[in-house]
Computed example of a mutant assay.
Amino acid sequence: MARSQEAAMDDAERPGSDEQLWSVFEFVRRYRLAKREENRLLMLYGPTASFRDLLANAQRHSLIS
Rank of each mutant, 00 (worst) to 15 (best):
D11C: 11
R32Q: 14
E19R: 05
M43H: 06
D11R: 12
E13D: 14
M43G: 13
R29F: 00
E26R: 13
R60D: 04
R32I: 01
S62A: 15
L21H: 08
L42F: 03
G46V: 01
S4R: 13
G46D: 02
A58H: 13
R36Q: 08
E6H: 09
D10M: 10
R32F: 10
A8V: 07
N39V: 11
R36C: 05
W22C: 05
A2L: 13
P47K: 09
R29S: 03
A34K: 15
I64N: 07
Q20L: 09
F27A: 02
A8H: 11
H61D: 14
Q59K: 14
L41E: 04
N57G: 06
Q59S: 11
Q59I: 14
M9W: 13
E38R: 15
P47V: 04
L41R: 04
N57Q: 08
A12W: 12
L54C: 02
Y31N: 10
N57H: 05
L21S: 04
R30P: 01
D18A: 15
L33T: 00
L41T: 00
A12R: 12
E26D: 07
D10Y: 11
V24A: 00
A58L: 05
E13K: 10
S17D: 14
I64V: 09
E38C: 03
R40K: 12
R30Y: 06
H61I: 13
R52A: 00
E13I: 10
M43T: 07
Y45S: 01
A58P: 03
A12Y: 15
L63C: 08
E6A: 15
Y31S: 04
F27Q: 00
R30K: 12
Q20I: 11
D53H: 12
R14K: 11
E38L: 07
D11V: 04
W22R: 08
R32Y: 07
L42H: 03
K35S: 10
T48P: 02
A8W: 10
K35W: 05
A58E: 07
L42S: 02
L44M: 12
D10F: 09
M9D: 15
H61R: 15
E26I: 00
V24F: 07
E13P: 02
G46N: 01
Y45K: 06
N39S: 14
V24K: 00
E37M: 06
F25V: 09
K35H: 06
L54F: 00
E6F: 09
M9C: 10
S4T: 08
A58T: 04
M43D: 12
Q5A: 15
A56Q: 08
D18M: 13
H61F: 13
L21I: 03
R52K: 15
L21W: 11
M1P: 07
V24R: 01
K35L: 13
V28P: 00
G16H: 09
F25A: 14
